[in-house]
C-alpha cells in the first residue's frame, strides 16, 4: 500500500529554462537506466525474494526511485517553462514538442518511449541482484554525463544528489547479495534457486528470517 507525500525528496528550483538540456535530462525519467525503469525493476523483482531483508531492501529502494521519478520530472518541467517558439526550434526541442508540447512523457534522450524491455525480473535472486547492481552503476554514469553537459548550478545540485543515491543503492545491493550468499551453499551458490526450490529455501532460513510479528 502506498500514499503520496506532497514534497520532493530533494529540492528543485531551476529559474532558467533550457529545453536543450530537458531533451537529455528526460532520459533519466523514461530511458533504459532511468528512474522509472529502476523503480519498476525492483518493484517487480521483490515478490519472489527468498529472505525478508531482501524483500525489505527492494521495496524500500523501489519506493525511493519513485521519489526520483518525481525529482527528474520536476526538473524537466522547470527546464521547459515559458518557452518561446524560437527557443523550441533552436534547441532542437521541437521534435519532443510536436508530440507532447511541454508535457512530461517518459522517454529516452533519443526519443524511444519507456519500455519494459529495459529491465528483467528473472525469478532468481542472484541474477536479479546482479542486474540491480549493474543498473545502479549505469545510472551513475548517466548522471555523470548529465553533469558534464549541465552548466546551471540549480540543475547540478539535484543531479549530484541523484548520482550519490545510485552509489548508496549499489552499496546496499552489494550487501543484499552478500546476505543472500550467506544463506546459500558456499561451495556452489547455484546448487538451487531459493526463489523457486521452496524446500531448500526453508532449510536455509536463519533464526532472523523466522522472526515474525
Amino acid at each position: 500500500m502506498w500514499q503520496y507525500e506532497k514534497r520532493l525528496q530533494f529540492p528543485v528550483n531551476i529559474q532558467k529554462a533550457d529545453p536543450g538540456f530537458a531533451k537529455v535530462m528526460i532520459t533519466q525519467l523514461g530511458g533504459p537506466d532511468g528512474e522509472l525503469s529502476a523503480s519498476l525493476r525492483y518493484m517487480s523483482q521483490r515478490y519472489v525474494m527468498p529472505y525478508p531483508q531482501l524483500k525489505a531492501m527492494l521495496t524500500e529502494i523501489a519506493t525511493e526511485e519513485l521519489a526520483h521519478v518525481e525529482i527528474v520530472s520536476a526538473m524537466v518541467y522547470q527546464l521547459t517553462k515559458n518557452l518561446t517558439m524560437d527557443e523550441i526550434k533552436e534547441s532542437g526541442f521541437d521534435v519532443y514538442f510536436v508530440d507532447h508540447t511541454a508535457g512530461i512523457y517518459p522517454q529516452a534522450a533519443a526519443g524511444i518511449p519507456h519500455r519494459a524491455e529495459f529491465y528483467q525480473s528473472k525469478g532468481d535472486p542472484i541474477a536479479d541482484l546482479c542486474e540491480d547492481l549493474a543498473a545502479e552503476q549505469k545510472a551513475r554514469v548517466v548522471y555523470e554525463n548529465l553533469l558534464r553537459l549541465a552548466s546551471d548550478e540549480e540543475v547540478k545540485k539535484p543531479l549530484r544528489f541523484l548520482r550519490q543515491r545510485e552509489i548508496i543503492h549499489f552499496q546496499r545491493f552489494g550487501e543484499a547479495l552478500s546476505i543472500l550468499q550467506q544463506h546459500l551453499d558456499s561451495d556452489n551458490y547455484y546448487a538451487f534457486n531459493p526463489s523457486f526450490d521452496e524446500a531448500k529455501r526453508k532449510e536455509t532460513l536463519t533464526c532472523f528470517d523466522n522472526k515474525r510479528y
Binding site: P52, K55, A56, K211, R212, Y213
Partner: peptide, 22 residues
C-alpha cells in the same frame, strides 16, 4: 504488531524487515 512503514519503527529493535510481507 510492529511498524507498517519504514518511518514508524517505534521499537529500539529494527523490526521493519520482519515477515510476513503483505
Amino acid at each position: 504488531y510492529g511498524p507498517l512503514t519504514s518511518r514508524s519503527n517505534l521499537d529500539r529493535e529494527w523490526k521493519y524487515v520482519y515477515g510476513p510481507w503483505p
